[in-house]
Amino acid sequence: MAKVLIVAEHDGKTLNPSTAKCVACAASIDGAEIDIVVLAAAVGDIAAQAAEIAGVSRVLTVERAENEYPISAILAPQIAALAGDHTHVFGPSTTFGKDLMPHVAALLGVNQVSDIMSVESSHSFKRPVYAGNAIVTVEVAEGSVVVATVRVASYQAAAGGNSAAVEAASADVALPTHTRFVGLESGASDRPDLQTATSVVSGGRALGSEEDFDLIYKLADALNAGVGASRAAVDAGYCPNDMQVGQTGKIIAPDLYIAIGISGAIQHMTGIKDAGTIVAINKDEEAPIFEVADIGLVADLFKVVPELTSALS
C-alpha cells in the first residue's frame, strides 16, 4: 500500500497552499495513506494548519533552530532520515520543492520525478517536458521509493476540516554549516499571490516602461487579481523577476488570466495552459496568444486597458 510523505512548504509562520495541492495529488494514488512533515524552528501554527487538510493521517514535526530557513542541505538529510517506510516522498514544484526534492532523492539513491501532472498508478505518472510541448508518461521501478515534485498548477488544494494527529518526530542527523541564509528581499505586496490568485493580469513587453506597467497593477486591483509578466517585461526591468510566468518562471492556473501586450511565446504559454479562461489584448492580430485565447481583443492596450479598468471597477 502507498504511504506518502509530503514535505510542507511554509514561510516560518504560515503553510503555503502548495502543500494542500501535494495532498490532492497524493490522494489520487489508490488507497494512499498521507503524512505531512513540517520542519521549522517553531512548528506549532504550521503543524496545526497542516493537520486541517482533508485526507492527512499524521503531521510529523521536527522543531530545530537550524530549520529556520529553507536550506536544502539542512532539510534534505532530515527528510531522508524520516522517509522510513514511506513508499513516496512528495514536495511541490515551487522553487522550494525544486531546490529540495532532487537533493532528497540523491540522498536516498534514487532518481526524482519532476512536475507530476497526473497519477496513472502508484508508480506511473504524467509530466510535461519541452516547455509543455510534450507530455511523457514515466514509470518508477516497483519497490523503489518514489521521490517527486507535484506540478501545483495541475491540482486544486485539498479541502480543510480535518484534525490529523500531530506527532513530534526525531531526525537525529548531523547537519552541515556550509550554507548560510543571509537575507530575503521579498517582492510581497498586498495583492493576491500570483500562484494562488483566482484571477491574474499579466503584462508584456508592449507596456514599454516601468511607469506604464502601472496600467496592469490598476486593472489587477479592480479585479482583486494577482499580477504576472512575460519574460520580456521582466528582462526589460518593468517589474520584478518573481512576477515572471512561464517555463522558467511560475506555472499558474487561475480561473481568469488576462494577457496584455504579450505575444504568447511557447515558453510563456506553458505557464498558463491550465488557466480557466484566457483573455488576450494585443494590437497585433497575428500574435500567437490569440490561437489559445478564449476571448481576444485586437486593440491598443493604452486605450482599452484604462477603459476596461473603469468598466470593472
Binding site: 539513491g109 534514487v110 532518481n111 526524482q112 520525478v113 506511473s124 510535461p128 517536458v129 509543455g132 510541448n133 510534450a134 507530455i135 511523457v136 508518461t137 514515466v138 514509470e139 518508477v140 521501478a141 523503489s144 481568469l256 495552459k273 479562461t277 484566457i278 483573455v279 489584448i281 490569440f290 490561437e291 489559445v292 485565447a293 478564449d294 476571448i295 481576444g296 481583443l297 485586437v298 486593440a299 482599452v304 477603459e307 476596461l308 468598466a311 470593472l312
Partner: peptide, 30 residues
C-alpha cells in the same frame, strides 16, 4: 535506478475562442 519513459504524447490543445470588437464586448463576454 532509472525512471523509465513509457510514452510521449502531444499536450491537449486549447481551442481558439471568440474575438470581441471592443471593451464593451469584452466585459459582456466575461
Amino acid at each position: 535506478p532509472e525512471v523509465k519513459e513509457l510514452s510521449y504524447a502531444p499536450p491537449e490543445a486549447r481551442q481558439r475562442g471568440v474575438m470581441v470588437e471592443d471593451v464593451a464586448g469584452l466585459v459582456a463576454a466575461l
